[in-house]
Every structure is written in structure tokens, then in C-alpha cells.
Amino acid sequence: MKISKVKVCVLRIEGTNCEEESYLAFKRLGAKPEKVHLKQLTGADVTADEKRSLSDYHMLVLPGGFSSGDYVRAGAIFAARMKSRLSKDLVDFVRAGKPVLGICNGFQILVETGLLPAMSGVMSDVPEAVLGTNDSGRFECRPTLLRKVNRGRCVFTTKIPEDKISLIPSAHAEGKLMFPIERRDRILKELYENDQVVFKYVDPEGRLAGYPWCPNGAVDNIAGICNRDGTVFGLMPHPERVFFRFTHPDWTRSPDGSGDGRAVFESVLDYASKKL
């Protein structure tokens, strides 16, 4: 499929606030993104010509923000609303090999929906992980360094060399990835074996480092994970905010070129153009 034909659904509800940058990232690379409200997919309170079907799209993006005010838990309400009406559509979407990207609040939504880490099957009934309150107890907003540790499974990072350190900013209060304490080690082992760990927070030398390099205290410094097929990917930092080099905080002192986040969108469009 030609990239110009790839239709991307950038899904929002009240409180989503990163849809514009996510939309533009795909638009600038020549794809066909559209900002879609969840109501348009569920068909509630919309006119006939506003109605959309998830199956009409080739890619789903859950952008960052504070959906439903982060009430109950970050992402929980968005997840519940999606699950109540779109469960089957979502499972079919993922089964068809169509990519799903969750950034920041979108990652929280994917975890609450059970689409990540999805240790068995496509979507778990109950969440198997959580993005809990940062260790600092505060909203952490700053550039973070991510090392790509994925060995090739994740379709969103194929254009990023292994071990490359990317500067991708973080902005969240609940980004501490956790698994059930009693099963944590086994789940981690499985994640590594399946090549589901994608990005880790590191210091400038690429070492796993504590606060503030790791803004939240996530287990093993994990910033992003994917499902077993590598087609569902969630991460806390915002690649769409560093599409251009000039939005890097150190852009006057760094070599010319594109922003570090751009490769995420290029990778997945490359996948879409070859596999869909």
C-alpha cells in the first residue's frame, strides 16, 4: 500500500490534547490521518456523515492528554468506554496486523484496555500492568533520553538503530510501569524473551540511571513496550513533540537533521507500506 493511502485514525475524547501534533506527524510524512472522536466510532450522538468505522482505517493512534480528566485512574475512563462498545473491533483491528500507537495517556489507555502487554492473546480481560504515580509524586515534564533496546520486533522502531539514544520529552504524573508484585519477574522475563521491551530511560552514556534520568521509577527503567507481534506499541514520552530538530532543547548545539521522534512515524509507515 502506498503511504499516501494509509488512513490513520487519531482518536480523541474530552481531555485529549496531543491530537494535533500526532495528526501532523503523519500528515507531514504523506499519510492520510484524521482526528476522530470516540463518539464517531461508537455512533452515539453523531450525524450520519460524522459516523466512522474503525475497520476503515489502517492505523489507530491514541494521543496524549488527560482524557476524562484522568478521573478514577489515568486512561481508565477512555479504556472503559472503548471496551464497552469497540472490544470486537479492536481485537479484529489488531488481529489484522494493523498498528496501534499509544503515546503517554494513550499508553495508559492501552494498558487499561488490556491491549498491552497482552501476555496471552490480543486483549486481556483485566489490566496486566499499570502506569502508577511517579515515585516523585509530581508531574515530571522534561526531555528524557531513551535507548532503543528492541531487537526488531516492534514495527514502530525499525528505523532506529539498536542502542541508539533518542531525546524524546516526557510529561506525565503517572508513568511508573508496574506489574503485579508476585508475578513481576516472570512477566519481565517473558517480555524480554518475546522482544516486547522497546525503550528504556537512560543517562547520556546509555546507562540505566535513576531519577531524574528515569522520571518515574518504572520497573527496569522501561519507557515503552509492544505486544508480541510488535504492532501495538505504547510509550510514555512524546515522539510527536520532537518531529523537527528545532523542537529539541539543544537544537542549536546538535547536528542538523530531523527530530528524534520522526523515526517512530517513519518506521510504522514503512511497515504499513510494505505489509498492509
Binding site: 485512574r73 483485566v126 489490566p127 499499570v130 508496574m178 503485579p180
Partner: peptide
């Protein structure tokens, strides 16, 4: 609680 109010992980 199982569907929304609590996350069994924590």
C-alpha cells in the same frame, strides 16, 4: 470494581 474502579495490579 473489576471493570473500572480498581486495577488489580496495584
Amino acid at each position: 470494581c473489576e471493570k473500572l474502579l480498581a486495577n488489580p495490579v496495584i
